[in-house]
Design a binder for these strands. Structure first.
Length: 218
DNA sequence: GCGACAG
DNA sequence: ATCTTGTCGC
């Protein structure tokens, strides 16, 4: 096989995103006191092997509850705005047993509604498994700034930009699925500790997946 | 045609 | 995301 990375049908992929984005809910089907856990999802790579990590912490104490890691060959290339097609298979395997859970909020590495077709990976995963999700990205992707700290899509605010005082690092907290922007911001900010700009569950998932990938590589 | 472009 | 040495700064 000369090409082990499958091509993706662009027009069909776009059609599916538009279709799925209609199922995104921007309201919160829960009260904050009902949330018992926050989870972080991230993927690192060792060549064509993707290593996904799911870190679950108690909320709001942020005491570590569990860590699950899974690796598999990834056959879809990375193409901006189509990230989900590449990483969602890993996340679905890792989170299938949690579908429709209403006491866990999943923080996903990437955008949610701040996406050209309003279906970034956080929203995509949220719709597929009916989870409460929030997008946590390190770079801007899409949308219109409202002032200095909010981003709107189709005229509706769907994300907040959090900046670190000294340098210019930023993170973008966006609605994933089954949550309002206000609740997404509130929960994500409660997960940010000390000087780390990244919410703890994501930071740990990032660390775990990266070191496992490095181990596989060597 | 030109520029932008998560991980 | 990953490839990579030394180096600037708290």
């Amino acid at each position: 096989m000369k090409r082990q990375l499958k091509k993706i049908n662009r027009s069909k992929a776009i059609y599916a995103q538009r279709l799925l984005s209609r199922r995104v809910s921007t309201s919160s089907p829960f009260k904050e006191r009902e949330i018992k856990y926050v989870a972080g999802l991230d993927v690192s790579y060792a060549g064509n092997v993707g290593v996904a990590a799911l870190v679950i912490m108690k909320y709001p104490s942020l005491k570590l509850h569990s860590i699950k890691v899974l690796s598999d060959i990834v056959s879809i290339p990375y193409i901006p705005t189509f990230l989900a097609y590449r990483e969602i298979p890993l996340y679905v395997k890792l989170c299938f047993s949690f579908r429709s859970r209403r006491d866990i909020v999943f923080l996903v590495d990437g955008h949610g509604l701040t996406h050209p077709r309003k279906l970034g990976i956080a929203s995509h995963l949220g719709v597929v498994l009916d989870l409460i999700t929030i997008g946590v990205a390190k770079k801007f992707l899409y949308g219109t700034y409202i002032g200095k700290e909010y981003i709107a899509v189709d005229g509706v605010p769907v994300a907040k930009v959090i900046s670190s005082s000294p340098d210019d690092r930023k993170i973008f907290i966006s609605i994933g699925n089954n949550i309002s922007l206000q609740n997404a911001i509130k929960i994500a900010e409660k997960c940010i500790v000390r000087k780390s700009l990244l919410p703890e569950p994501i930071r740990i998932a990032d660390d775990v997946s990266r070191r496992v990938a490095r181990k596989i590589r060597r």
